[in-house]
């Protein structure tokens, strides 16, 4: 059951990316494909991050083992889409010109936030391999993965800065992140009380 969920999710997460590449290569992304690539990869990463966090919440209510297996593909694919988003920005939006990209990184809040989000995710992606929890010790590994919360806050701030109009989706995602964070903090407090 666990491996079915894991591999099924890998394929399901890969699918929108494959469709996007196929549309790109066959000229179906409109007259300015680079911009569509940039927006879609960013949106996929954001939605998968939300799914990862949301799954954690569901798990806290329903501790069913296969659910645990579903988190890793969602997290890894969040990172992959975020990396693709950054690569599209660097190579296509900035034309691969490092001088221009560096000027944007120095001056622009949304770029700083985006890079911060990616860097925060990097240790999570690196330690997503099977042996990582054993190598680090499960407690440390678990603590390290609390980085997903600052990541989520930085990423949603990035989304606010790049949205010209604060649409319902952005407002809804922000409220959802705040709710999930609050519920996580509440659960942690309860556990601490129990332990004490």
């Amino acid at each position: 059951m666990t491996s079915v969920i894991r591999w099924g999710l890998w394929l399901a997460c890969a699918l929108p990316g494959l469709v996007l590449v196929w549309h790109w290569q066959t000229g179906q992304l409109g007259v300015v494909p680079h911009e569509v690539l940039l927006h879609r990869t960013g949106r996929f990463a954001l939605l998968l991050l939300m799914a990862t966090l949301g799954l954690g919440f569901v798990q806290s209510l329903l501790p069913w083992r296969p659910l645990y297996a579903a988190r890793r593909p969602l997290g890894v694919w969040t990172f992959l889409y975020a990396s693709a988003h950054a690569a599209v920005w660097l190579m296509l939006d900035q034309g691969g010109i490092l001088e221009f990209a560096w000027a944007e990184m120095r001056k622009m809040l949304h770029v700083k936030l985006g890079i911060a989000g990616l860097l925060l995710m990097l240790p999570l992606a690196v330690t997503s391999v099977d042996i990582a929890p054993r190598l680090l010790g499960f407690r440390l590994w678990k603590r390290l993965h609390l980085l997903v919360w600052p990541t989520a806050l930085v990423v949603i701030a990035h989304t606010w800065v790049v949205s010209r109009f604060q649409n319902l989706l952005v407002i809804g995602l922000t409220l959802a992140i705040l709710f999930l964070l609050a519920s996580r903090l509440y659960a942690a407090r309860k556990n601490m009380k129990k332990a004490a």
């Binding site: 034309g95 221009f100 000027a103 944007e104 622009m108």
Partner: peptide
């Protein structure tokens, strides 16, 4: 003179995607 949310030093030429 930059826009508050992006700077104006460069631009994307839409017909060839260069900056």
């Amino acid at each position: 003179v930059r826009h508050p949310r992006w700077h104006q030093a460069t631009e994307r030429r839409l017909h060839d995607g260069t900056r």
